[in-house]
Design a protein around this nucleic acid. Structure first.
Length: 486
RNA sequence: GGGGGCGUAGCUCAGCUGGCAGAGCAACGGACUUUUAAUCCGUGUGUCCCGGGUUCGAGCCCCGGCGCCCUCACCA
């Protein structure tokens, strides 16, 4: 009947033929539909009654004068049964001009087939949107990683696993918000474009604001602004938003990622540990129905309480080095080099410890662990308060699950003098600019405060059991590419 | 940025030692009124990522490039 070379013009021709039948097609709306899974779930009540559904045609099995098709909607799939006798010859012709991939609306009677599948005996069908392009393999789905990311819609259409991951992500965000909102936290939004960046150690993305003729940065953290809000009396604040770090991609790093940061006044890092383990286990229970998660070949139990391990004990346990007796950089560096660690020749003590921890400790922290009490000169402790009576220890913890870092937290440094000194020292070493306005906010008086930052993408990785951060990001950044599709 | 791997039909993938470009699904034509990875009969898939080179002959070998994946490095 139709003899055209490519599938697109074939489908265009089918649409013309369908239009020529004079029946309704491509309406602007198709209201009052039920989700597919609701029809299946409520079969007992719906059997024999008329329902309307809509979705994408995924597979068609044409058998002469009858046909089965599955449509997919946001909830799942349902089978439709088309029969010449029921539809009448005109509508039957209309149906036969539809293609796999088309979006259709259907109305009909709920019944169960001989093999027991809840289905809809279609009495009326309408084309809602034409698909001019073929679907990926109906059995294998779409496997090509690059295509899955560049054309994520195809991934979502054809791979149930992709839909599942992003449902987990959505539920994670919703559960976290519910949890925090119920505990008196308020959600805020702080600037993404900043004229001075800070709050973490990372290279920023730089852009230019024409109106001010000034370079501005995409934020690398929300910390310094959220603490200003604590100074302002908000007491319990959180932000869930994108941070941007101009660094390499890896299975656990994305240049653009989502971070939860929360701050609670009158709390210290012990309180924040309790909050964190309760939050994460609540989210896991809510989303997965269990505190036991499969991740990267491990069974991870996020039920509280989590193991607490000081950096000193961890280094003793996993590297066999006693930080208490081994006090000079030279001694420590020698021991690290004995263990085949790579170190810059003049690395300061804090960096040597960091190298030991990241190489020999972290990969072993599979079950949820609070690694606590960092040496004050350990990189990343700039904004952490000193432990009472132990000025060389920062009240800081990092969360490890499955051998990788999930979050970082402090009893927040609220002494402006100490903060300024430490920022100035860092500025001398690394050239980082001191955020004097932040220090001035501390001078106004910040209550004792605990705070934590949790990588949402990484949390979703653990909750969904996927090993690549890109799997948790709908549209991961890819190099631009010429699309040569005709 | 370094190292390794991959790129073949719309999709999933084979392709041997360099010798006519392959299969399944999808598509198209036909049969079939409860199928479900429907089945049966028939048809065609193509910038083998791009550009050079070697060769009588390149999907395969060599050089250069592009893209993706893994890994290392970077990551107060």
């Amino acid at each position: 009947m139709v003899e055209l070379d490519d599938s697109r013009s074939l489908r265009e021709e089918k649409l013309r033929q369908l239009a020529a039948l004079g029946l309704p097609y491509l309406p602007n709306r198709f209201p009052a539909t039920r989700p597919s899974t609701e029809v299946v779930r409520d079969f007992g009540a719906l059997e024999g009654s008329r329902v309307r559904v809509a979705g994408r045609v995924m597979r068609v099995r044409l058998m002469g004068k009858a046909a089965f098709a599955h449509i997919q909607d946001r909830a799942g799939q349902i089978q439709l049964y088309f029969k010449l006798d029921v539809l009448g010859s005109e509508k039957w012709e209309y149906f036969k001009l539809l293609d796999a991939g088309d979006i259709i609306g259907a109305e009909g009677t709920v019944f169960k087939t001989r093999t027991g599948e809840v289905s809809i005996g279609v009495e009326d069908v309408v084309l809602l949107a034409k698909s001019y392009l073929p679907l990926p393999d109906k059995f294998h789905g779409l496997a090509n990683v690059e295509t899955r990311y560049r054309q994520r819609y195809l991934d979502l259409i054809s791979n149930e696993e992709a839909r599942r991951i992003f449902e987990v992500r959505s539920s994670t965000l919703r559960t976290i918000r519910d949890y925090l909102n119920n505990r008196g936290f308020i959600e805020v939004e702080t600037p993404v474009l900043q004229s001075l960046y800070g709050g973490a150690a990372a290279n920023p993305f730089t852009t230019h604001y024409a109106s001010l003729d000034a370079d501005v940065y995409l934020r690398i953290a929300t910390e310094l602004y959220l603490k200003r809000l604590i100074v302002g009396g908000m007491e319990r604040v959180y932000e869930i938003g994108k941070d941007f770090r101009n660094e390499g991609f890896s299975w656990k790093h994305s240049p653009e990622f989502t971070m939860l940061e929360l701050y609670q006044a009158y709390a210290d890092y012990e309180d924040i540990m309790a909050l964190t383990e309760d939050l994460v286990s609540t989210v896991a229970q809510d989303i997965c129905g269990t505190p036991t998660l499969g991740f990267n070949g491990h069974e991870i139990d996020v039920s509280p309480p989590w193991q607490k391990l000081t950096v000193r004990d961890a280094v003793q346990q996993y590297a066999g080095i006693d930080l208490k007796t081994c006090r000079t950089v030279e001694e420590l560096t020698a021991k690290a080099l004995e263990r085949d660690l790579e170190l810059a020749p003049s690395a300061p003590r804090g960096e040597v410890i960091e190298e030991i921890v990241s190489e020999m400790v972290e990969p072993n922290l599979i079950q949820p662990t609070f690694l606590i009490d960092y040496p004050i000169d350990f990189p990343g402790s700039l904004l952490a308060k000193r432990k009472a009576g132990q000025p060389d220890i920062a009240e800081r913890f990092e969360i490890y699950v499955g051998g990788f870092e999930l979050g970082n937290a402090f009893t927040e440094l609220n002494e402006p003098g100490d903060q300024l000194e430490r920022m100035e020292a860092l500025a001398r070493e690394s050239g980082a600019e001191v955020d004097l306005e932040f220090v001035r906010a501390l001078e106004q008086g910040m209550p004792p405060t605990g705070g934590v930052g949790i990588g949402i993408d990484r949390l979703v990785m653990v909750l969904a059991g996927v090993h690549s951060i890109r799997e948790t990001i709908l549209f991961p950044l890819l190099r631009r590419r010429e699309e040569a599709n005709a």
